[in-house]
Amino acid sequence: MKAVRLLGLPVLLVLLWWAVSGGSFYLPSPDRVAVAFAETWFSDRLTGDVLPSVGRLLAGYALAALLGGWLGVPIGLSPRLRATLEPVLEFFRAIPPPVLVPLIMLLAGIDTPMKVLVIVSGCVWPVLLNTVEGVRALDEVLADTCRMYGIRGWPRVRGFVLRGASPQIMAGLRQALSIGIILMVISEMFASSSGLGFTIVLFQRQFQIAEMWSGILLLGLLGLGLSLLFRRLERWVLSWYYGSGAARA
């Protein structure tokens, strides 16, 4: 029953795709895309394009998470720092990250550092702003408890500040993950000779339409896989939060 509910709609969509794709050059049928998928991605493109893309994504994402958390904690803890920085942060967050690509290319060239930087420049904002918000809203009674029992410095940050803000930090990380995937593709569409974004554009220019579709399919699957992994991580990190019913309150 569960399998039917889980797979029912995807199967239906594939059937629908099959029905409407009859003979169109730009919309190849699912079986042709499936063949193209196997031929294209289970080859040296896996190590030449897919893995480097994913590697840059993870590197940029991890850097953004560290940077966002590392900056967000002091900003969240200090009302004065917050009042000074928040308008500026909101401004930077409002800039669509793709327009930074030309600028970052000038500064960092066109290789891996540029692509990682583009991902960082987009992912850092949701993490940073959510961390600030989470730290700002920490429970005052718990803060008093820490003071009373001499919990300060790094144990306080690790045991109270980060844990207490973790529901918001995880929400920021979840937003950042989808932004990261988008920027991974965009950074490779500009000036690149490898990667998923580059390959999809290449296929399109060479009229390898089934291959192009298979790339889009792969990106969708990659996003889905990462999102499922993230949900497991979130369940693990926030088990206390879901258990305590705070998530529902």
Partner: peptide
């Protein structure tokens, strides 16, 4: 503290 629900670390 009065607020027992908020003075213990839920995690």
């Amino acid at each position: 503290f009065q607020e027992y629900g908020r003075s213990l670390f839920p995690w």
